[in-house]
Amino acid sequence: MPKTPALQEVIDAAEELWPHSLAESWDAVGLVAGRRDAPVAKIHFAVDPVSAVVDEACDAGAGLLITHHPLLLRGVTSVDASDPKGAVVHRLIESGCALLTAHTNGDSAVGGVNDVLAEILGLRDQEPLKPAEEGLTEEGLGRIGSLEPGMPLGEFASRVFGALPSVAGGVRVAGDQDAFVQRIALCGGAGDSLITAAHDAGADVYITGDLRHHPASEARERARGGRPYLIDVSHFASEWLWLPAAAQALDRVLSERGYEVEVAVSGINTDPWDFVLTPG
């Protein structure tokens, strides 16, 4: 007969999927709030621990909210409820809902953010752009793989656009839309730090979010108008795709251990932009 897990047992299952050791040194992952012996019958997944998402999880009676982005990435000295982050902490505690973060460990893990994005876009034989210092050879930041068959950049950009949740910013592309592309590099979230790695790996195009002006401009200068071309997507959208797969994977691990939980994925769009104006 399946039983309800305690929070610690869910944390143990999450550790199997998204090991803490894969997190970058600057990151803040793991348990943020919650009693480890509390029962968890409902688990909610989301990208951002913003107030609307926390309210959604708490109103649904979730015992645990798992988010990709950390709530307290930088040090704090107060969780005063008049502050937005403090208010989130109070709402979670008062509602009996724990908060767990799987950020760069969720990016690097097998079956994590980048593997899911690569699979959805149809890449084969993918490998990390920046292999993990400790862990499996398949683990690390970013992915690069092959598109079979290849296609024009404009057509591939349309595929990327169609695969992502609809957000105001859409998709931006730097490169000749008729250029043939087949070797694809990507990094969910903000990945302009891996542009050089994409270049060195021989990528025809590099997909990531939050591409800043100077790194993008410098990359295009180095490429002299050639490869790798760039596709800039929404940070939120590129990572939301992981949530259904993550929820399914955690549910499977818990089920294998004899536990039964109800798992839900938030449908709230937490991309910060509401509309965009474009020429013409």
Results as ranks from 00 to 15, higher is better:
residue 262 E to T: 11
residue 216 A to V: 10
residue 276 V to C: 08
residue 207 I to H: 01
residue 279 P to T: 06
residue 94 E to C: 09
residue 185 A to H: 01
residue 95 S to I: 07
residue 122 G to V: 04
residue 280 G to A: 04
residue 210 D to P: 03
residue 75 G to I: 04
residue 271 D to G: 10
residue 56 E to H: 07
residue 201 A to V: 03
residue 169 G to R: 14
residue 97 C to I: 01
residue 54 V to I: 15
residue 201 A to I: 02
residue 150 G to S: 04
residue 19 P to E: 09
residue 257 R to I: 05
residue 272 P to W: 11
residue 71 L to P: 01
residue 204 D to E: 08
residue 80 D to Y: 02
residue 47 V to D: 13
residue 32 V to P: 10
residue 194 L to Q: 04
residue 145 G to K: 03
residue 156 F to P: 01
residue 85 K to P: 14
residue 57 A to V: 08
residue 130 K to G: 06
residue 150 G to W: 06
residue 12 D to P: 10
residue 227 R to K: 12
residue 144 I to M: 05
residue 260 E to W: 01
residue 138 E to H: 15
residue 188 G to H: 12
residue 168 A to V: 11
residue 130 K to L: 12
residue 37 D to W: 03
residue 245 A to C: 05
residue 21 S to H: 14
residue 15 E to I: 06
residue 29 V to S: 00
residue 61 G to D: 09
residue 119 E to N: 13
residue 188 G to N: 13
residue 1 M to E: 14
residue 57 A to L: 02
residue 113 V to E: 05
residue 269 N to W: 05
residue 205 V to K: 06
residue 59 D to I: 03
residue 268 I to P: 09
residue 83 D to H: 10
residue 46 A to M: 11
residue 275 F to M: 03
residue 40 V to K: 05
residue 7 L to M: 11
residue 52 A to K: 11
residue 207 I to Y: 03
residue 130 K to R: 15
residue 101 T to C: 09
residue 278 T to V: 12
residue 267 G to C: 08
residue 98 A to H: 03
residue 245 A to Y: 06
residue 83 D to R: 15
residue 195 I to W: 04
residue 223 A to H: 04
residue 225 G to K: 09
residue 74 R to P: 10
residue 214 H to S: 14
residue 278 T to N: 15
residue 205 V to D: 08
residue 120 I to A: 08
residue 15 E to R: 01
residue 261 V to F: 10
residue 168 A to F: 12
residue 253 V to K: 07
residue 241 L to T: 05
residue 200 D to R: 13
residue 145 G to Q: 03
residue 261 V to D: 07
residue 267 G to V: 05
residue 124 R to A: 14
residue 276 V to G: 02
residue 99 L to N: 07
residue 22 L to Y: 13
residue 104 T to R: 11
residue 125 D to W: 01
residue 142 G to Q: 10
residue 117 L to Y: 01
residue 135 G to L: 13
residue 207 I to Q: 00
residue 37 D to G: 00
residue 28 A to S: 15
residue 154 G to S: 09
residue 224 R to Y: 02
residue 277 L to I: 14
residue 234 S to A: 12
